[in-house]
Design a protein around this nucleic acid. Structure first.
Length: 942
RNA sequence: GCCGAAGUGGCGGAAUUGGUAGACGCGCACGACUCAAAAUCGUGUGCCCUCGGGCGUGUGGGUUCGAUUCCCACCUUCGGUACCA
């Protein structure tokens, strides 16, 4: 019987499905293990070979853990709300639900072919009302909670109300009991973990909605690359900043890659420093008096070098600080700043600013220092004001240079030649009581002094902002809130009496059917045109993409529950995710939001762990190899092969084209061609190409000397637009799913990105055939019941040992070579013994589940190989009595000698020095030194 | 600029604690089978060489009997981030 993967894979797919072999239930008798994949957004393009890389790895791990006796939760679902389906709806009128349903169906077909062990009965779809009902429920938990900084955890809002009632806390606007209902609500809104606020947001006109900070890259939208502008709007926010410290602290307790943890740390951006008040000279009192300006600094030690203050152009006191003489200049400057987009600001960093006319007093020296406004100081960070120390800060220095402001050196860095301005090293100078101190010492000393004199206090600042939660879109979870009075989106919250209240009924608040998906154009979502929404004064914005994905891993634990988001007993059993496989692109989005939600649920007692993902693996990307043809701008009818674009053309070619040199073709540009039109040697199939692109029908293709057109190539992201996509369906049709799985792993370490190279796949395909031949040779069953000998058992147990070590460390690529080595060795030993082959079949089952199941059955087993037990490694078969030592002379290997492992160093030395090949180097003289490392190496120093 | 990861044959990559660098696979060369080809199987394959050996893990130094592995400086690539005071 030949290895017929098509028949085998068809057969077992059906059997596994019918028998529900991957269905899992809570089982207190067995230890749990939770292996999770980041669930995909089902896009219309389907999967390419890069997508399943992480799924294959996690599936191998899940299957391995199952064989090891764990009760493994390994689910899959869909992150099904999102912009692409809605954009498509705007363009075509097709309902996003329909687009999404089709895409999911296609994903499922593709996934099924690869032989994953997902428990599909636990599938979730975030756009399913039965699912988002609970997303809304969690939203309301957040809404009905506040962060108690005294207990350092989230608590129900009732405990806050109690504090107000009892007078322990005082609302800003008056006695709690004297406040109107609306004012009480507005007060509570300042504490709720999701809250309504009026603030500057990232508005993307093209997408018609606001974006969270992590969805904006370089001033453009991450999705689509559209321009993003600042706009003040009434929005829901997630009060994630209350969790900044705990989100930082938790990173020390999870097993994630250093780079990913670092990204989260940088995003949160905690910095310790001081808030220092700079008073204004009394002589300079304004109409409305400004007592002083608070600045935030991480370098209070440099305060004696602070020669001016800079405040953000948006700072609330700009008006008050501006003197009459400076009013015009300041007004002009503010107009200029407003005209600058974020993109411009980031691309051309100009040194700009304007003097307000006012002065402040350096609290230590009493010196009057000028106050400037400048765009390099951001309103949103710290206090929006800085003390500028030009001697010790690059930006302040540039500013001082431009405006001719004094520079006072305060740190002597002569002992640290390579140190930059911002480095915290050196000795203090020109700084009165700090003189002579090291920087770190000085920081501590000045902080004490600042607090003693009451001019400021220690302060921790964060870069992280509260996340914007509202999206002015249709295809998302409705926010379950309604208003008693509807406010206007362009009016600050609180000025239009628009207090929101939760919608408890109907539950869930289901997305209505609408006829148009277009945004209203005035910043509101398509729901603002919906009769029911208008009538009930429902919130018309929907939730962001990260809402549904912030808790889906909990829903997998109890996906059908319609009473709770998940039953306590099930959460108690599954707890949290043991290993999470996914891309690093969600470093500061999804992975930060889910951690926050999980911590809130933990504080409120709904989950029993405070970190959702114990271990995280970022699989690399599989890139595509794009192919190009080349064309000159002046002669679009001429196609030049890759090898000729940088060389001279032959005389015949020049004559043919009627030009004098290759330069006459103009600027030569590459054009992507579909990789299916290029053969394995990189030559273009010209006729097929012309069929694909008829506009090139009459083009002249210059050829290489061998008569072919050779294409250029480059490694890029795999994408439809680059025509370099490899579809797993095709690979599986040609080689089978087992081969596809093993090849994806064989490509290299899981975290590494690498291009797809289908040349190498034949190696894995050959291996599977070879492995099969251990069982069937020329269609004849080879397996015998003979007793295995020591050599054969050593091959088996060495392999099992390697597999265990490598799988635990997620080194799946070396597992594959382990199988290859074992197969080669057993092949040359002509070993066909059941006692060796049967354990091998179990151990290969996680990698190649189909062929393993088929051979398991052929070996006469009735059950499923995936419910078997991983074979135990017997160390007794691995014990060696002697070792073949490499003998190095002065560190270079010159000889080899087999020595018993129990030999003494002295005996070893005698043996080694007696070797002819060693005598050649020692000339019979005793060595300077003799090193004997048991089981490793012998080194003779002469 | 800053932070993080990485640099090993023609290619993908291996070397787990400082102990034979290049496992395994691709490719290539030769051979077997075949009328022939494909497929398959076998052998060889880091580079140089005067066949003694020499050189080799981005570059230059260091520690060590011994360094891909540890230390210092630098170069390159990739990822993230950027007026964050």
């Amino acid at each position: 019987m030949e290895y017929d993967f098509r028949r085998i894979e068809e057969k077992w797919k059906k059997v596994w499905d019918e028998k529900e072999v991957y269905k899992v239930t809570e089982d207190s008798a067995r230890p749990k293990y939770y292996v999770l994949d980041m669930f995909p957004y089902p896009s219309g393009a389907g999967l390419h070979v890069g997508h399943p890389l992480g799924y294959v790895a996690s599936d191998i791990y899940a299957r391995y853990k199952r064989l090891k006796g764990y009760n493994v939760l390994h689910p899959m679902g869909y992150d099904a709300f999102g912009l692409p389906a809605e954009q498509y709806a705007i363009e075509t009128g097709t309902h996003p639900a329909e687009t999404t349903r089709k895409a999911i169906q296609r994903y499922r077909e593709q996934l099924d072919k690869i032989g994953f062990s997902f428990d599909w009965s636990r599938q979730v779809k975030t756009c399913d009302p039965a699912y988002y009902k609970w997303t809304q429920w969690i939203f309301l938990q957040l809404y009905n909670s506040w962060y108690n900084r005294e207990t350092d955890r989230a608590e129900p809002i009732d405990s806050l109300i109690q504090k107000f009632k009892s007078g322990q806390l005082q609302p800003e606007i008056g006695e709690w009991s004297s406040l109107s209902e609306a004012d009480q609500q507005r007060t509570l809104m300042k504490y709720r973990l999701v809250y309504l606020s009026f603030a500057e947001v990232n508005w993307c006109e093209a997408l018609g909605c606001v974006l969270a900070n992590d969805e904006v890259k370089d001033g453009k939208s991450e999705r689509g690359g559209y321009p993003v502008e600042k706009r003040k709007m009434r929005q829901w926010f997630l009060r994630i900043t209350e969790y900044s410290d705990r989100l930082l602290e938790g990173l020390n307790r999870v097993d994630w890659s250093e780079s990913l943890k670092e990204q989260q740390r940088n995003w949160i951006g905690r910095s310790e420093g001081a808030l220092i008040k700079f008073r204004l000279p009394t002589a300079h009192s304004q109409e409305e008096r400004v007592e002083g300006i608070d600045v935030f600094t991480t370098r209070p030690d440099t305060i004696f070098g602070a020669t001016f203050l800079v405040i953000a152009p948006e700072h609330e006191w700009v008006k008050k600080l501006t003197t009459t003489e400076q009013q015009k200049a300041i007004a002009n400057y503010i107009t200029y700043v407003k005209s600058r987009t974020d993109v411009e600001r980031q691309q051309e960093k100009k040194v700009t600013g304007e003097f307000t006319g006012s002065y402040a007093l350096n609290p230590f020296t009493g010196t009057e220092i000028p106050i400037y406004i400048a765009e390099y100081v951001l309103a949103g960070y710290g206090t929006g004001a800085i003390m500028a120390v030009p001697a010790d800060d690059e930006r302040d220095h540039r500013f001082a240079e431009k405006f001719g402001l004094p520079v006072i050196d305060v740190i002597d860095r002569s002992m640290h030649p390579g140190a930059a301005m911002e480095d915290k090293v050196g000795k203090m100078i020109n700084s009165h009581f700090l003189n002579g101190m090291e920087v770190k010492e000085a920081i501590a000393a000045v902080l004490n002094e600042i607090e003693k004199r009451g001019i400021g206090q220690r302060k921790v600042n964060y870069k992280q902002r509260d996340a914007i939660y509202s999206r002015q879109r249709y295809w998302g979870e409705p926010i379950p809130m309604h208003y008693k009075v509807v406010g206007k989106p362009d009016l600050p919250f609180g000025e239009s009496n628009d207090v929101p209240y939760p919608v408890f009924d109907p539950s869930p608040l289901e997305l209505p059917v609408v006829s148009s998906f277009k945004p209203t154009g005035d910043g509101r979502s398509p729901l603002a045109n919906n009769e029911e929404w208008v009538k009930n004064h429902y919130e018309t914005d929907t939730m962001p993409g990260y809402a549904g994905s912030s808790w889906y891993f909990l829903r997998y634990m109890d996906p059908q529950n319609d009473k709770e988001f998940a039953a306590k007993s099930k959460i108690d059993y599954w707890q949290n995710v043991d290993v999470y496989f996914g891309g690093a692109e969600h470093a500061v989005g999804h992975l930060l939001y889910s951690r926050m939600w999980h911590k809130v649920l933990f504080d409120l007692g709904y989950v029993n762990t405070d970190e959702p993902f114990k271990k995280l693996v970022n699989q690399g990307m599989i890139q595509g190899v794009s192919r190009f043809i080349y064309r000159g701008s002046a002669r679009p009818d001429v196609i030049i092969p890759f090898n000729k674009i940088e060389s001279e053309l032959t005389g015949d070619e020049l004559k043919l084209l009627g030009i004098n040199s290759i330069d006459d073709l103009g600027l030569i540009c590459p054009i992507h061609v579909d990789i299916s039109l290029v053969d394995e040697h990189g030559n273009l199939k010209i006729d097929e190409f012309k069929k694909w692109r008829p506009e090139y029908g009459n083009a002249v293709f210059l050829l290489n000397a061998d008569g072919h057109y050779h294409c250029g190539s480059s490694v890029e992201k795999m994408s439809k637009s680059k025509y370099n996509v490899v579809n797993p369906d095709e690979v599986i049709a040609k080689y089978g799913a087992d081969c596809f799985r093993m090849f994806e792993m064989f490509l290299g370490p899981i975290e590494q990105s690498k291009p797809w190279d289908d040349k190498g796949i034949s190696g894995v395909s050959n291996f599977l055939k070879k492995f099969w031949r251990l069982f069937y040779e020329q269609g004849v069953w080879q397996v015998t019941e003979e007793t295995a000998n020591a050599v054969e058992l050593k091959v088996l147990h060495k392999t099992l040992q390697k597999l265990e070590d490598d799988i635990e460390r997620l080194n799946f690529n070396t597992c594959i070579s382990g199988f290859m080595i074992a197969t080669n060795e057993l092949n040359s030993l002509a070993c066909h013994k059941r006692s060796v082959l049967e354990p091998l079949v179990i151990s290969i089952a996680p990698f190649a589940p189909f062929v393993a199941e088929e051979l398991w059955e052929k070996l006469g087993n009735s059950g499923c190989v995936h419910h078997a037990a991983f074979p135990k490694v017997e160390p007794k078969y691995l014990i060696e009595s002697s070792h073949k030592y490499p003998v190095s002379i002065n560190g270079k290997v010159r000889a080899e000698i087999e020595l018993p492992l129990d030999i003494t160093p002295q005996e070893a030395e005698n043996e080694v020095l007696g070797l002819d090949s060693v005598k050649k180097w020692t000339n019979g003289n005793p060595p300077k030194k003799f090193i004997y490392v048991k089981g490793r190496i012998v080194n003779v120093v002469v």
